[in-house]
Write a protein that binds this DNA or RNA. Structure first.
Length: 858
RNA sequence: GCCGACUUGGCGGAAUUGGUAGACGCGCUCGACUCAAAAUCGAGUUCGAAAGAGUGUGGGUUCGAGUCCCACAGUCGGUACCA
C-alpha cells in the first residue's frame, strides 16, 4: 500500500460492494421454468472467451475484453433484458501439465489453485458474472459431456446427399462392413505424418505446431497412428455460413483462407499401365504441361520408376523423409527434385512428358501429383529453369507490356492450345473442364487446404478417449455412455516417456478394461473442452444432457433473428483455431437437432492487444508486464476498468500508460467530490452541493447531461467506450464548475457511469439514498437506464462558419431556422469576410444550412 | 511472395452523409491555495514572431478532402511451395 492518501476511498467500498453482489447474487439469471424467471423480458447472451487459468494470473489483456462485455451486460440489464453473462475455466492443457511435472505436484492441485486465483482477481474487478453458472472443463461433470459429444462424432458419418451428419447405425442397417464404417466416421483412426514433439512427448495439430515451435519446443514429422476428426466434411458449410455472421471481415477472411477453397479439375494422365491423377486449378493451361511432378511420398513412385533411375529416386525420397518440416519450407527457395525415368501421356495432345518427383509437391493436398506448366506457374517455372525442362507459352497476357514467361494472371488469351485458342483464361477453363468430362479424361473438382483435425494427444492432463480396443479383432468400439465420465487414473508418474502411446499406458490396471478389451490411452486436446463450453453455461448442472432443450432454445434461439451468442468478445489469436473447431462441433450438434442454430456465435468482436509502456508486446523477458493486482491496489478496480476502456477503440492495438490510469482516477475523484467533501477529521461526507431543490429550470448542466445521455447510449450500442467516457468527463466538469447540482441530474450521471465504474457509483448512490429517502430503493444496477429529453437538446441559435475560398475566416450566430438568404447576407456582412473579399468578385456562394457558408471569390 | 488492417500534435486518441481538424485524457507552462510541498482548483498548450502551413508521400475529383479516387512508402497482423 502506498503512503499516499487515495483521492477517494475505493479501498473501502470496492470490496464492500463485491461482497454484497456475491452474497445477494445480484447478477444471477434464471432459466425458463426456474423460480425468478421473467418470461416478459428479451434475452441477451454476452460471452467472454474463458481464460486458461495459468499460474501467472490475469494479465491486463483479460480485463480489456471482460470490461467491455461487462459494460454491455450491465447496460442491457438496465434496459430490461435477461442477460446471461457467465465465466468459467479452460483448465485442461499443456502448460498446467508442464508445470506439474516441473514441481512434482499433481496438475489437478495446481489447476485448482490457479482457478481460485483467477476467480479472486475477476471478482476484485467487479464483473457482473452469474457465478452460479461457473464451469471448468476439468470438472468430471463437464468431462462427461465432452466425452459424450466425442462419442456422437465417433458414431456419426457425413451423409453427402443430405449434407449433414447421420448415425453410422444407418450404414450398419444397409449392411456396411465394420471396416467400411470405420473409414467414414467423423472421429476415426488413421496413420499419417503428424507433428510430433519429442520435448513434450505428444503430437500436435497443424494449427498448434507453429505456436509451440515459437515457444522453443522442437516439433518434427513422424508417421503415427492417431485419432482424427473429419472437419473437412464441413469445409463447404464452414465457408458458406460465415457470410451472414456479424464478425470482423478480417476474421472471416482468415477462416476462408485457412479452409482454402479452390476450383479446378482432376485430370488423368496415363503412365504405362498406371493412371496418375493430378489436381489443377488451371485446366486451361493443359497444352502447356511439359512435365509432371509427384510428391516424393506418392504411392505410384516405386511402380513407375525405371531401373536406371531407381537408385537416384530412392536416395531423393530418403533425403526428403529425413528433412524436418522446417527444412522443407524455409529452405524451399531452392527447388530440388529427381527424374523417375517414366513418361506420362498428356490426354489433350498425346504428348509424352517426363515424370519427376519433387518435394515442392505436397502429399496432403489435391492428389499429391501435378502437371507442370512452367510458362504460367512460378514454382514450375523455377523448377523448369533449374533442370532445363521445356517451357511452352499457352497464355498471352492482355497487357502488351507484360512478358508471357512466368505470367500467372487470369487476364490473358489462350494461344498454342488448339480448340482453346483465342478464348480468355476464364472461358478456356470452363471449356476444358467440359471437354475433359465429355472425354472421361477428368472432371471439375473443388479442393480445400483444410485438413482433418488431429485430435489425439499423448498427455495425462486431458480427457481420455472413451474408447476400447478389442484385443481379439483389433477393432475399436465406444465405451458405454453409462460409464462416462471416464477420468484419468490416479498416477504418481505422469511424465511423458517418449512412448507414442502416451503416459496412460503406464497405468496398467486402468488400461485393462477386461480380458478382452483394453482402453485407448490417448487424451483429447485442450480445444475439446472449449469447443462447447458456451452451451454448458446455459444449463451447467444438468446431469442428464449436455444442455437442456428448453434452456438451449431460450438462450440460443433466434425467434426470427440470427440467434446464438449475441456478443462474443476475445482476442484474434483464436481466429482459426477455437473459432473454427467450435463452429464444426456446433454444426454436428445442429445436424442432430441438439442445438437451435447452425452457427454458435452471431456477433464477434476482437479486442486489440494491449502493449507494454514501451510499445512492445508485454512479456516477462522484456520486463514490461503490467499486473492488474498492482493497478487495483494503487488506483482501484473502477479506475483500471475505465482506463482500459478509455485508452482507445476496443478493437485497436494500444500501449499501456500508467499515467493515463492516474488521469482516470482523477476523473473518478472529481465525480466523487461533486457530492462529497472531506471533513476536518479526514473522513468524507456529503457536501450539500448536490441538492433535491429543483425548480425545473433547464440549466446548462442539465442540457449537458442530456447530451451525455444520448452520446453514452449510442456509444455503448456501438461499443465506442472511449468516446462515451470522454463525454461523461465533460459532463462531470460542467457539474464541478456549477455551484449547485440537482439531485436527479447527478443521479442520472451515476446511472450512465454505473456500467463502467460500478463500485463508486453504487457507493455514491447509497450515500445519497441515506440523505434523500425519496430516491428509489435498491442498487443502481437494478434500475432503469435513463432516457434523454430531446427538447433539452434543441438550440435556438447556432454558430455558422464562414469560409472564403474554402478557408475559415469568420463565424456568425444565426437562428437555427435561418434561411439561405439570411445566412448568405449575414456571411457577406461579417467584418473579417469583408477584408478578404475586398476588391474581388464574388463568383459563387455555397450555403450549407445550419453549418457553413462558403464564399468563392477571385 | 500473397492476403488483410493501419498511418492525425510531445503522447493515447476525437472528428455524422465530404462541411470549424486536434474533443477527452496524459505531459508540459503559468497562476491560486500553502511556511513549503503534495493534493486540489483556474488559465494556456498543432507548428510558426507573423503572414501562413498543417491529418505518411505524390497526384486527382470538389465551392470545400483526415474522410472519395489513383499511384507509392512505412508499420503491424495472418499465411507460407495449397498446383
Amino acid at each position: 500500500m502506498s503512503d499516499r492518501k487515495n483521492p477517494y476511498p475505493f479501498e473501502q467500498f470496492e470490496p464492500k460492494w463485491q461482497a454484497i453482489w456475491d452474497k445477494e447474487k445480484t447478477f444471477k439469471v434464471s432459466n425458463p421454468g426456474e423460480p425468478g424467471f421473467d418470461a416478459s423480458k428479451k434475452k441477451c447472451y454476452i460471452l467472454d472467451m474463458f481464460p486458461y487459468p495459468s499460474g501467472a494470473g490475469l494479465h491486463v489483456g483479460h480485463p480489456e475484453g471482460y470490461t467491455a462485455t461487462d459494460i454491455v451486460s450491465r447496460y442491457r440489464r438496465m434496459n430490461g433484458y435477461n442477460v446471461l453473462h457467465p465465466m468459467g475455466w479452460d483448465s485442461f492443457g499443456l502448460p498446467a501439465e508442464q508445470y506439474a511435472i516441473k514441481t512434482g505436484q499433481h496438475p489437478a492441485i495446481t489447476t485448482q489453485a490457479n482457478i481460485d486465483n483467477f476467480r479472486r482477481q475477476l471478482k476484485m474487478l467487479g464483473f457482473s458474472y452469474d457465478w452460479d453458472r461457473e464451469i471448468a472443463t476439468t470438472d468430471p461433470r463437464y468431462v462427461k459431456w465432452t466425452q459424450w459429444i466425442f462419442l456422437r462424432l465417433y458414431n456419426s458419418y457425413y451423409d453427402t446427399e443430405q449434407q449433414k451428419a447421420r448415425p453410422v447405425s444407418e450404414l450398419e442397417a444397409r449392411g456396411w462392413s465394420r471396416e467400411q464404417i470405420d473409414a467414414v466416421r467423423l472421429a476415426y483412426v488413421a496413420d499419417g505424418m503428424v507433428n510430433w514433439s519429442p520435448d513434450m512427448g505428444t503430437v500436435l495439430a497443424n494449427e498448434e505446431a507453429e505456436e509451440w515451435k515459437s515457444k522453443g519446443f522442437t516439433v518434427e514429422r513422424r508417421k503415427l497412428r492417431q485419432w482424427m476428426l473429419r472437419i473437412t466434411a464441413y469445409a463447404e458449410r464452414l465457408i458458406d455460413d460465415l457470410e451472414p455472421l456479424d464478425w470482423p471481415e478480417s476474421i472471416k477472411m482468415l477462416q476462408r483462407n485457412w479452409i482454402g477453397k479452390s476450383r479446378g479439375a482432376e485430370v488423368n494422365f496415363t503412365c504405362g499401365e498406371h493412371t496418375i491423377t493430378v489436381y489443377t486449378t488451371r485446366p486451361d493451361t493443359l497444352y502447356g504441361a511439359t512435365y509432371m511432378v509427384l510428391s516424393p511420398e506418392h504411392e505410384l513412385v516405386p511402380a513407375i520408376t525405371t531401373p536406371e533411375q531407381k537408385e537416384a529416386v530412392d536416395a531423393y525420397r530418403k533425403a526428403c523423409a529425413a528433412k524436418s518440416d522446417l527444412e522443407r519450407t524455409d529452405l524451399a527457395k531452392e527447388k530440388t527434385g529427381c527424374f523417375t525415368g517414366a513418361y506420362a501421356t498428356n490426354p489433350v495432345n498425346g504428348k509424352q512428358i517426363p515424370v519427376w518427383i519433387a518435394d515442392y509437391v505436397l502429399t496432403g493436398y489435391g492428389t499429391g501429383a501435378i502437371m507442370a506448366v512452367p510458362a504460367h506457374d512460378s514454382r514450375d517455372y523455377e523448377f523448369a529453369e533449374k533442370f532445363g525442362l521445356p517451357i511452352i507459352q499457352v497464355v498471352q497476357p492482355d497487357d502488351p507490356g507484360t512478358p508471357w514467361r512466368d505470367f500467372v494472371g487470369y487476364n490473358g488469351t489462350m494461344v498454342n492450345s488448339e480448340h482453346l485458342n483465342g478464348l480468355s483464361v476464364t472461358e478456356a477453363k470452363a471449356k476444358m473442364i467440359a471437354w475433359l468430362e465429355e472425354k472421361h479424361y477428368g472432371a471439375g473438382k473443388v479442393n480445400y487446404k483444410l485438413r482433418d483435425w488431429l485430435f489425439s494427444r499423448q498427455r495425462y492432463w486431458g480427457e481420455p478417449f472413451p474408447v476400447l480396443w478389442d484385443n481379439e479383432t483389433g477393432h475399436h468400439c465406444a465405451l458405454p455412455e453409462t460409464e462416462l465420465p471416464l477420468l484419468q487414473p490416479e498416477m504418481e508418474d505422469f511424465k511423458p516417456s517418449g512412448d507414442p502411446r502416451g503416459p496412460l499406458v503406464k497405468a496398467t490396471g486402468w488400461i485393462h478394461y477386461s480380458d478382452r478389451y483394453t482402453r485407448e490411452t490417448n487424451t483429447m486436446p485442450q480445444w475439446a473442452g472449449s469447443c462447447w463450453y458456451y452451451l454448458r453455461y446455459l444449463d451447467p448442472t444438468n446431469d442428464n444432457a449436455f444442455v437442456g432443450k428448453e434452456a438451449e432454445a431460450y438462450w440460443m434461439g433466434g425467434n426470427g433473428k440470427p440467434g446464438g451468442v449475441d456478443l462474443y468478445v476475445g482476442g484474434t489469436e483464436h481466429a482459426v483455431l477455437h473459432l473454427l473447431y467450435a463452429r464444426f462441433w456446433h454444426k454436428v450438434l445442429y445436424d442432430y437437432g441438439l442445438v437451435s442454430t447452425p452457427e454458435p456465435f452471431n456477433k464477434l468482436v476482437n479486442q486489440g492487444l494491449i502493449l507494454g509502456e514501451d510499445g512492445q508486446k508485454m512479456s516477462k523477458s522484456r520486463g514490461n508486464v503490467v499486473n492488474p493486482d498492482d493497478i487495483v491496489r494503487e488506483y482501484g478496480a473502477d479506475s483500471i476498468r475505465l482506463y482500459e476502456m478509455f485508452m482507445g477503440p476496443l478493437k485497436e492495438v494500444k500501449p499501456w500508460a500508467t499515467k493515463g490510469v492516474e488521469g482516470i482516477s482523477r476523473f473518478l475523484a472529481r465525480v466523487w467530490r461533486v457530492a462529497m467533501t472531506e471533513t476536518q477529521e479526514g473522513t468524507w461526507a456529503l457536501s450539500g452541493k448536490v441538492t433535491d431543490e429543483d425548480n425545473g429550470e433547464v440549466t446548462p448542466v442539465r442540457k449537458e447531461l442530456h447530451k451525455t445521455i444520448k452520446k453514452v447510449t449510442e456509444d455503448i450500442e456501438s461499443m465506442s467506450f472511449n468516446t462515451a467516457i470522454s463525454k461523461m468527463m465533460e459532463c462531470t466538469n460542467a457539474m464541478t464548475a456549477a455551484t449547485k447540482v440537482c439531485l436527479t441530474d447527478y443521479v442520472t450521471l451515476l446511472h450512465l457511469l454505473n456500467p463502467f465504474a460500478p463500485h463508486i457509483t453504487e457507493e455514491l448512490y447509497s450515500l445519497l439514498q441515506a440523505q434523500y429517502p425519496a430516491l428509489p430503493a435498491g442498487g443502481l444496477c437494478t434500475q432503469t437506464w435513463p432516457a434523454f429529453n430531446p427538447e433539452y437538446l434543441v438550440e435556438n441559435m447556432r454558430e455558422i462558419v464562414v469560409q472564403v475560398n474554402g478557408k475559415l475566416r469568420d463565424k456568425v450566430q444565426l437562428p437555427v431556422d435561418a434561411d439561405r438568404e439570411t445566412a448568405e447576407a449575414a456571411a457577406l456582412a461579417a467584418p473579417k469576410v469583408q477584408d478578404f473579399i475586398a476588391g474581388k468578385t464574388i463568383r459563387k456562394v455555397v450555403v450549407v444550412p445550419g453549418r457553413l457558408v462558403n464564399i468563392v471569390a477571385g
